[in-house]
């Protein structure tokens, strides 16, 4: 479960995120969409504990990420938009390293790593250094590493960047399975078709503020537009540009 209360981030006098309030329940895949510079990545970085909010608070499974960062992060999996990794580690070593950071040790770890490598089709490359991986392979490794500690909340920034169609389908299926298991997936994306396909709820953010939220149908009603999310999004954000 994720709660954002009056979340605000100011950079050099400019409000990147402006008084954001959200409550996302367990088992939801939540889409966070908006134009470039709307404050999506800033919000996600604050939720992952990488940036400090200027005001407001973030609760991850009821834990305040500012007050209890370690406990909150134990229940959180973060997948950034660009898969920067330790290039001189092998895929398997990276997963072991990540497990160590989360205090996961013991015999079950090896089995879990093998399973994730298999699911993400990286078994053949497990002992190769990451520097030799393609962008898509790195992205799959990052997603595998985010699931290693079986988090209750997954925060994803642009999950499909660099993935081939097969990889994209795999990730979508995994997110759905994860949500069915009771985890919450918070996903920022520009791919509106993806948001429409997998997200139970969507929020449209513009200039740091949420301008509309709900299911795709709810948003359609709010915008007075019928049809796909793309049309709804363009209508809503175009309205904002004019004001």
């Amino acid at each position: 479960m994720i709660t954002l209360e009056n979340l605000t981030k100011v950079y050099s006098g400019v409000k990147a995120v402006d008084n954001l309030n959200l409550r996302i329940s367990r088992g939801t895949i939540f889409g966070f969409i908006g134009p470039n510079g709307a404050g999506k990545t800033t919000t996600i970085k604050m939720m992952a504990g990488i940036l400090k909010p200027t005001e407001g608070r973030i609760l991850i499974n009821g834990l305040d990420i500012a007050r209890e960062p370690s406990r909150a992060k134990m229940t959180l999996g973060f997948i950034p938009d660009r898969p920067f990794l330790y290039e001189k580690l092998s895929g398997k070593e990276f997963l072991k390293f990540k497990a160590g950071l989360y205090g996961i040790t013991g015999d079950a770890l090896q089995e879990r790593i093998e399973r994730l490598l298999e699911v993400f089709e990286l078994t053949e490359w497990a002992d190769e250094l990451i520097e030799a991986y393609s962008h898509g392979m790195k992205q799959r490794l990052v997603i595998a590493s985010a699931m290693l500690h079986e988090p209750k909340v997954i925060i994803v920034d642009e999950p499909m960047v660099g993935l081939d169609p097969k990889g994209a389908k795999l990730v979508k299926d995994i997110f759905r399975d994860w949500a069915r298991g009771g985890s919450t997936v918070f996903m920022s994306t520009h791919t509106l078709a993806l948001a429409q396909e997998v997200c139970g709820e969507v929020a449209i953010v513009n200039r740091g503020r949420i301008v509309a939220s709900g299911t795709s149908e709810d948003l359609g009603c709010q915008a007075g537009v019928e049809g796909d999310l793309e049309r709804i999004f363009l209508k809503i954000t175009a309205g904002m540009e004019q004001t």
Binding site: A48, G49, S70, L76, P80, F84, Y86, L101, G103
Partner: peptide, 14 residues
């Protein structure tokens, strides 16, 4: 740590 520093920042390690 380079660009991979996000891994540390987003982990439970203080």
């Amino acid at each position: 740590e380079g660009n991979a520093f996000w891994i540390i920042l987003s982990s439970p390690v203080t």
